[in-house]
Design a binder for these strands. Structure first.
Lengths: 202, 202
DNA sequence: GTGTATCTGATACAGGTGTATCACAATCGC
DNA sequence: GCGATTGTGATACACCTGTATCAGATACAC
């Protein structure tokens, strides 16, 4: 037996390097060599832990999703119990908006992978769409809870409201990353949307 | 003087080739050679009409924007006068949804360029953001008109409604291109949104 | 210690990339 | 017709890409 390093940890470190390179220079700038340099590691090591570039990108996507789930449940844990439906919705919006560097990177990578998935169907689509659906149903659940609390009008179609929320969130996030809007302006638009949903009272 | 070909026409043909390649294989598959092959033209000719790849991509972006403007005004021309504010909004949503192959290509290219603009600030940002702002203000005007007609509640913030519409439209379009939703489902979500704006009566 | 399985560094290879060069064809003013 | 200007084909160059290879470290079981 040799050095016995934890492969999962190494892979996570390399995935982080991918994220940093892509957030800085774009996903097209992610090459085996640029990732190796970013992680301060030899090219061979990247090859060792990811047999191909496709595997590297695929692994990074899974890494991102796991991180996203962790951040999301951390945010939920901070919320006062029992959950208010509105609080969950606002937490979701705050989380996904590219306000700080971490969420900026996350959103940028998400958009990059989405574009890839548009023309590389089988490769990136499966985990990608699955993640989106998961999020959407979680959000729909929160909306349903809000309806039960009497916070949200019962005549609203929760699944469509969830779809609308994710869509608006993705769209407004993109506009921030592209430089059309500041994060503050984007937040105002989102707050406007939530106010129109729940009523502006709070 | 030599053959005297119309450079603008040639450039437009090459830009169309870029669009076809990108819509089929992704923007990363757009190379000087692939564009030449798609346009059934020599590599040299692509080089002749676009001095560099950056210029090719830049020119294609401008070409797309011009096309988008033309399609948009064609749709407006089909509308019964005087414009109903709601009709303008619905025309906008119908236009931008990736339902047919043309709008699919348009939306896919738009998303790809958006991702590029996120990390190539100065290059693609200027025309890109300008186009978005133009569209947004046009939409805000239509909403204001609807308010004047009494179609739309006057207490609504038209600029935020316009931002919301564009965001939701972009987000839902992406979900279609990624394969999460069909165009029909997306249209239902959009119609839901418009109904909640104007009232479901019609 | 020693051997063996795990890990790693250096380097090579074939293919694709954007770009440049050079000679030649095509066209029009005169 | 002639010659200058514009357009075009073939080809070469340097660089970067993903991937493969091969010898040599490293660290534990025994």
């Amino acid at each position: 037996m040799p050095k016995t390093v934890d492969h999962e940890v190494r892979r996570a470190q390399l995935a982080d390097a991918v994220v940093r390179v892509a957030a800085r220079d774009g996903l097209h700038a992610v090459t085996m060599r640029s990732v190796a340099a970013e992680a301060d590691v030899s090219l061979r090591q990247v090859q060792y832990y990811f047999r191909s570039k496709a595997e590297l990108l695929h692994g990074t996507l899974r890494h991102l999703e796991q991180q996203s789930r962790e951040r999301w449940s951390a945010r939920l844990a901070e919320l006062p119990r029992p959950y208010s439906g509105r609080a969950v919705v606002e937490a979701f919006l705050a989380e996904a908006l590219p306000s700080d560097e971490v969420s900026r990177a996350f959103h940028l990578l998400g958009a990059s992978y989405a574009v890839l998935a548009m023309t590389d169907p089988d490769l990136a689509e499966q985990p990608f769409v699955a993640g989106l659906n998961h999020l959407e149903s979680q959000l729909a659940d929160a909306l349903r809870a809000a309806q039960a609390e009497g916070d949200l009008p019962v005549e609203l179609d929760v699944s469509r409201e969830a779809a609308r929320l994710i869509a608006i969130n993705h769209g407004i996030g993109t506009s921030v990353l592209v430089g059309q809007r500041t994060a503050e302006e984007a937040e105002a638009v989102l707050r406007y949307h939530v106010d129109r949903l729940f009523g502006s009272s709070g």
